[in-house]
Simulated scan of single mutants.
Amino acid sequence: MPHKERRNMLIRICLALAVLLLPAAARAGSLPKGLVYLRDADPTIVQDIRYAGSHNFVGRPIKGYLAAECILSEAAAKALKAMQGKLAAKGLSLIVWDCYRPKRAVDDFLRWSRDPARTEMKAEFYPRTDKQSLFALGYLAVRSAHSRGSTVDLGIVPSSFSTPPTPAALPPLKPCTAPKGERFEDGTIDFGTGYDCLDVLGSTSNPRVGAVASANRQMLKAAMRDAGFRSYFREWWHFELANEPFNNGFDFEITASPLSEKPAR
């Protein structure tokens, strides 16, 4: 065999071995056993993964989010698929904003909270809250349930809704506590605040959001309870699977699902 061909063959073999030796979660589209892409389980559920972009309380993509994908345990994804079927009969759909969250993302939040200079998104996401108190107040956690893969942040939108294209620039900041029609329009039915509104108005049973929003929050809470999830009183959008399969958190990066190039709806 000529020297050049032998060298090229050796290079191909080395590259193949390098891929095989990568941790499973590091390969694009590959997940630890027991976790799935929600897109694969139910492509009709709308995804607007905020931490993969800049429209979130930090104002930039969060570490570990290399793709705007929802990853969940098989049990959690199956429960959401069943709930989506019930909502579809009513002309509604789930929208998810965050699912599995790498530990490195949680650490990123912690570092950000300790930097008093970074308040670019305060006017929208925490207009009345001191960012250095977000962990102490329970809006953020040093060890997040999201890292175990069975916790999800979600809301409800009309079935006709689809996530708009990501804007080239951030939309004008409007307080998440403002009434629907005045705050950022995320497409949901009225829940009283925007997603990730780090404010007392985000508490599930806060009566000050009005009758319609209160009723919608209780409807979402009841539907998620029937699907096997428990709610978190400080955040109307946060739900944890009651019988979650994993006790420890993960820290692999979120990469694209093989189906992510296909339209979700």
Score class of each variant (00 low, 15 high):
Val58Asp: 02
Thr44Gly: 05
Gly187Trp: 03
Ile11Ser: 04
Trp236Asn: 06
Asn248Trp: 02
Gly181Ile: 08
Arg265Asn: 09
Gln84His: 06
Lys103Met: 12
Ala222Asp: 11
Asp153Asn: 04
Lys180Gly: 12
Phe184Asp: 09
Tyr37Asn: 13
Leu92Cys: 08
Ala24Glu: 15
Gln47Tyr: 03
Gly202Thr: 01
Glu74Ile: 06
Val46Gly: 07
Ala141Val: 02
Arg183Thr: 14
Ile95Leu: 09
Arg265Leu: 09
Tyr37Lys: 10
Ser260Trp: 08
Phe250Tyr: 08
Ser30Pro: 00
Leu241Val: 12
His146Glu: 04
Lys86Asp: 15
Leu15Thr: 04
Pro127Tyr: 00
Leu241Tyr: 03
Arg143Ser: 13
Ala227Lys: 04
Ser147His: 00
Asn206Met: 04
Tyr100Asp: 07
Ser257Trp: 02
Arg50Asn: 00
Tyr139Asp: 12
Met224Glu: 01
Glu261Tyr: 08
Leu80Arg: 01
Tyr126Asn: 12
Ala88Cys: 07
Gly228Met: 03
Ser150Arg: 00
Lys262Ser: 10
Val58Thr: 07
Arg6Ala: 15
Leu94Ser: 05
Met83Trp: 08
Ala242Phe: 10
Lys103Cys: 01
Ser54Cys: 08
Ile49Val: 15
Leu134Pro: 12
Ile13Leu: 14
Leu259Arg: 13
Tyr37His: 13
Ile156Tyr: 01
Lys131Gly: 01
Ala211Met: 07
Phe233Pro: 06
Phe246Lys: 04
Asp130Phe: 02
Asp42Ala: 12
Ser203Lys: 11
Arg12Trp: 07
Asp199Phe: 06
Asn206Cys: 11
Ser113Phe: 00
Leu201Met: 15
Leu137Tyr: 13
Pro175His: 05
Ile71Thr: 14
Ala82Arg: 15
Ala18Thr: 13
Ala169Asp: 10
Met224Arg: 01
Val200Asn: 09
Asp108Gln: 09
Gly29Phe: 03
Arg104Glu: 14
Ile49Thr: 07
Lys78Met: 08
Leu140Asp: 03
Ala79Gln: 11
Ala24Gln: 14
Gly29Tyr: 04
Ile71Ala: 03
Thr255Leu: 10
Phe161Glu: 05
His3Trp: 02
Glu69Asn: 08
Arg230His: 08
Gly149Glu: 04
Leu80Asn: 05
Gly85Leu: 14
Lys174Val: 15
Lys63Thr: 13
Val46Lys: 14
Leu38Asp: 04
Asp98Ser: 14
